[in-house]
Every structure is written in C-alpha cells, then in structure tokens.
Write a protein that binds this DNA or RNA. Sequence first.
DNA 1: TTAGTATATGTCAGATGTGACATATCGCAA
DNA 2: TTGCGATATGTCACATCTGACATATACTAA
Lengths: 105, 105
Amino acid sequence: MKESKKKALEKRGWSVGSAKDFLKMTDEEAALIELKLSLAENLKTRRQKSHLSQEQLAKLLDSSQSRVAKMEACDRSVSIELLLRALLRLGATRRQLGAIISKAA
Amino acid sequence: MKESKKKALEKRGWSVGSAKDFLKMTDEEAALIELKLSLAENLKTRRQKSHLSQEQLAKLLDSSQSRVAKMEACDRSVSIELLLRALLRLGATRRQLGAIISKAA
DNA sequence: TTAGTATATGTCAGATGTGACATATCGCAA
DNA sequence: TTGCGATATGTCACATCTGACATATACTAA
C-alpha cells in the first residue's frame, strides 16, 4: 500500500497508526480495505456524475446524509455490503462491481 | 431468479417465502443475494479443492466449524465481508474475486 | 458580513453479524 | 448394527453496523 493511501486511511480511523500496527495488518485485511476504498471512491464518482447531493442519494438509499458521507469517506463503520447495496441502487451492474473489485487500488 | 434457486434460498431463511414477499424483494436485494450465493459456492469449492475440512478452514479463519458451514450454506447471518475475508485467506486474488462477482448466478 | 447549500464528524439506540457451544444428521468403514 | 469423522442447525452473549440527529466546516452568492 502506498504511503499516501495509508495516511488517508489513518484519518478514517483504521488505526493503521504506527508502522508496527501497520505491519500487523494481514495481507487479507489490507486487501479488503483497499477493495472497500475502491468501492467508496466509485460510489462518490457515480453520485457526482448523477448530479446528486449526498442528501438526495441518502433518500434514494433510505439512509441519511451523514451515512452517505461516511460511505464515501470509507469510514470504519461502513460495511462492504452497504457500499455494494448503494452502488447497485445507483445502477451498477454485477459486471461493473466485478470490474471495480478486480482493479488494484 | 430461477425457481430452483429461490427454493434453495428459502431454505436458508431468506424469507423469499410467498410469491408476494418474493415480489417485494428489490432488484438490488436479489442481486446482492445472488452475488453472495456465488461467493459462498466458490468458498465451498475452494475448500474442497484444498482438501480441508470445515473444521480446518475454521481454524485458518479464527472461526468455528458451524460458521464455516453457514458461510457455505449462505446463511442469513453471514455477511459478504466475511465471505470475502475467507476467500482471500484461501488465496483468492482481487482479480479472482472480481471474476466471481461479475458472473451471474 | 450574512445566509444558504453541501459535506464532514461525533454520538447513540436499535439492528445485524460473529464465534462458540451443544446437538443433530449424514456417509461410510468395520 | 456400531462407531467415527464431517457437516448441518439452533441458540446466545458479545461485537459491529446502521440510520438518525446534532453540530461543525467549507464554499458561494448577495
């Protein structure tokens, strides 16, 4: 993982914290987080391309603006399932989800 | 969704139950469940190809045999995140996960 | 400046997911 | 049949996720 990405994640509460903690992260954990990050980035892009505010998207998802903000920020409290659900609601196909997940962060 | 698949899901506690309930399922929900099902099937296949028992895989995942059984059975109580975690632990690459997710159930 | 809109952050009660355990069922060899 | 290893199912305490709310910050326009 790149250092810039690491820092971005630290801010989100991933306790990638010290180098020690960072090294303790297993490969799977790192892969999962990067995967999640890709989904979050894609969600933000899609929303913006759809010219929707977070508030509007929230309504579409039966959720709240604050949660949408957290989804896009890849907050610790956001599950992969929630991100997938949101992307599907925004019209993403299964194939497109696969493409997002395939690509390295 | 095919009728056979629907029945398989009913047994797993997805309350696809009556035709009415079934129709109430949104496209996204159906897509998510099928996606989950694909991951679960792949997990079982991978475990078997690795000649591991559920008990052995459970140890590998710091989990329990019963949870592994539920993962493979696509139980309601199993998250997509848990399935992805397990697949990664079994050596699946991000690209392979993408492929699983791309393919229709 | 002020006001308005969009986004970010912290918190919390209720919902959902998780490992662990007990127990049941299956498949097969002796 | 009996016994045994593997898998399935039900339950539960504890952990994590979620929507909602309050509030903060950022950016424009008047």
